[in-house]
Design a protein around this nucleic acid. Structure first.
Lengths: 167, 167
DNA sequence: CTGGAATAGATGACATGTCATCCATGTTTG
DNA sequence: CAAACATGGATGACATGTCATCTATTCCAG
């Protein structure tokens, strides 16, 4: 350890454990998902977000917001998914600039086939390791961090005055 | 929600919050780091792992293990870092196949310049949002998940018989 | 010691993500 | 209404990650 930062041992432990957990967990989940379906984890995220909508479709920017991706990443990825027939792009009539992404029947089929297995993986690899209390504690903590984070986030990357007074 | 999986609402909430936290947090940290130093987050990880060692160097496979990366990813990335003069590769005398990666003075300088700012970001964006108890709880939980995970992990991706009896 | 397996690492082809930029449309304001 | 500006999205160049494969070495069984 020695350096690594100016976090104390405890903080450091927690921080590293979290990072490692995230890394390992997503690698594992992605592997399982790929093995049991033709979907990459990213495809899964997109498809869930879409099928989750009553219309089965969203404007690109809304979808990006919903899943927390950058616009351009989503644009690229949706194109690739469209090539594979998992989604389609539809022009938006009310706003000439925009488009919708919509799940196709194929996409729906794939996601429905993949979801139970994925959920099982999540349970097996993550949820089942923890008590409900621990899980809640993690969820609550994550929520809190997210809320704080959003106070910083919207700012254009410039005006951070660190030691400042606000918040 | 409706579909999304076979997790109950609580589990789902926690799981999603964690994922989002991770995503936002690392994006933010990477942005801060890049703004304040010439380092990408990945560079930081590698350099910390190396400077953390008494010798300032590690075999590639050890480094990969330590930071949880795939070999090939590390190999590529170390090459790029070597091109930038942050690390060097040294032949291993005791094992003709292997090499060491070692921090260079430049790498050391950069990491030392970057570390305090990064630590500050971690504190500001993550640690300070939580009580010490919450932080510990997260760390402990992550540790537990990691340990369970390692029971699955070493298996070659094939022999998973899901509904099986083991564990 | 020798032939086969395992290991360390490099490499190239390809998939994915990021960044800057561009275009078209929409929105605002004088 | 027109000129400036903002927004949604696409795009191409480039950075990064993954996968399969290759080479060189080491290890191990006979």
């Amino acid at each position: 350890m020695t350096k690594a930062s100016w976090l104390d041992a405890r903080q450091e432990r927690a921080w590293r454990a979290l990072q490692f957990m995230q890394m390992r967990l997503t690698a594992h989940l992605a592997r399982d998902l790929a093995a049991e379906s033709g979907l990459a984890y990213q495809d899964y995220v997109v498809l869930v977000a879409l099928t989750d909508e009553p219309e089965g479709r969203l404007r690109l920017f809304e979808l990006a917001e919903k899943i927390g991706w950058e616009r351009s990443r989503l644009s690229h990825h949706v194109s690739r998914m469209a090539d594979r027939g998992l989604v389609t792009k539809e022009k938006c009539t009310s706003d000439g600039r925009g488009s919708f992404v919509a799940v196709t029947p194929l996409g729906k089929k794939e996601i429905e086939a993949a979801a139970p297995g994925h959920a099982e993986s999540v349970r097996r690899l993550f949820i089942d390791s923890l008590t409900p209390e621990q899980l809640d504690a993690m969820g609550d903590a994550a929520q809190i961090v997210l809320e704080r984070l959003s106070q910083f986030d919207p700012l254009p990357p410039e005006q951070r005055d660190d030691k400042g007074s606000a918040n």
